[in-house]
Design a protein around this nucleic acid. Structure first.
Lengths: 218, 218
DNA sequence: AATCTATTCAATAAATTTATTGAATAGATT
DNA sequence: AATCTATTCAATAAATTTATTGAATAGATT
């Protein structure tokens, strides 16, 4: 093998893994799997893909060594192959926001963040938790909360929020969070809470980011 | 814009940047540009691409915001759009080596690293520099050395090494380095030096990695 | 003004990726 | 043993990516 053949093969092998990440559907799947393991059917449902199509994308991710499987009864659960996978997704997400302003604008506009709706950063939340009387609210589906959540957060899935408002105090500040910066649950929750007269804001990032940064989790 | 449309657009925008990175030729170009800026012709020559093909790949990288240009006389020089780009390439390289064992084996086998040829890590080199009497040898082309190099390293481009052996001491240990873990210059240099009876090893990573890790550079 | 030179553009064919459809499979459950 | 269920497979058409070729361009230099 000569030098050129070696380089072609080496860069091709490295690109294989990156190529597997470089697809919008697969990025969304990786982002979802950062919450924990999911069956093919749930992955398809959450990402609005057909089951066959989701399965095909999962094969690509598995072939690239980015996800692994575990079997429970009749179901196959897919999960990230390691922390490095989420870290790489996070790095690419941040690179994308940094180099491609359209990505950031899209998020800003969709979340119509006026001065009332500006999100709180992880550092700011950490400070508030130490200094003020706040409520940290996890609005993800209950099973995701149970797999891990921000320390002292309470769980009210966004779908149940309208019916469980009485559990929340009117006088304290409420910080809602969900899966990540592209997840809309927290934004929806804040909208509802503000309409009902609560003092609420959302965390910009999600639980996997919080955990990856080493902030206190349970 | 509904939730699904937003997600499709957001993940697509983020994937655009990753897609631009997820190609073997473009990864090689990014790796090269980590040494500094190069003209299209030099990039084509270094990567064994035709000039038109190299230009096309550079357009893709530029379109994704990963590289920028500066003009000098008749030439256009391409350069990385920021430190984040090299950091992302580094993260993807390490993810590739971690998740795809073939990539690592390829490098190991090509550099036929027997016990005599095991590379030195950056941390080991840093320690050796403090404790022992060693020579750090930069074997990249001279202009790349001049743009920046490991502190106290001397420059002998690998092409000139055979004719300049007398500049090196027979009694001290020599650590050669080059562009990165996929660059063969340092391996070639170590081979030659060992054949001529010198005590030589190569650094596993290259100068951009050394700099990114915050080790002393000039 | 004419020429040169580095780079990009445009057209094309081949290769690869993607989503869809319907069938196949493997492993429970009845 | 038959049935059910979650998932994968195989075939296909459409879309995208890639490398190649030769021409075009823009900005020096003569």
């Amino acid at each position: 093998m000569d030098k050129r053949e070696f380089k072609n093969k080496a860069y091709s092998e490295l690109a294989r893994v990156t190529k597997a990440l470089g697809n919008p559907r697969r990025m969304e799947i990786i982002d979802l799997l950062a919450q924990g393991s999911f069956s093919v059917e749930r992955i398809a449902e959450q990402t609005n893909l057909s089951v066959a199509n989701a399965s095909q994308h999962l094969q690509v991710l598995k072939g690239a060594g980015l996800v692994g499987i575990s079997k429970k009864g009749n179901f196959i659960f897919y999960e990230l192959a390691g922390e490095k996978v989420f870290e790489a997704w996070r790095a690419l997400r941040e690179l994308g926001f940094a180099q491609n302003p359209e990505a950031g604008n899209l998020v800003k506009n969709f979340f119509h963040s006026d001065s009332q709706r500006e999100p709180v950063t992880m550092e700011e939340l950490q400070q508030k938790m130490n200094q003020e009387d706040i409520v940290v609210l996890d609005v993800r589906p209950g099973e995701e909360y149970e797999r891990g959540h921000i320390k002292e957060a309470i769980s009210i899935p966004v779908k149940e929020l309208a019916g469980r408002l009485k559990a929340l105090p009117k006088n304290a500040e409420i910080i809602a969070y969900c899966r990540g910066p592209l997840c809309v649950y927290a934004d929806e929750a804040v909208k509802l809470l503000q309409e009902k007269g609560y003092n609420a804001k959302r965390l910009k990032e999600g639980f996997p980011d919080w955990k990856a940064m080493g902030f206190p989790a349970e």
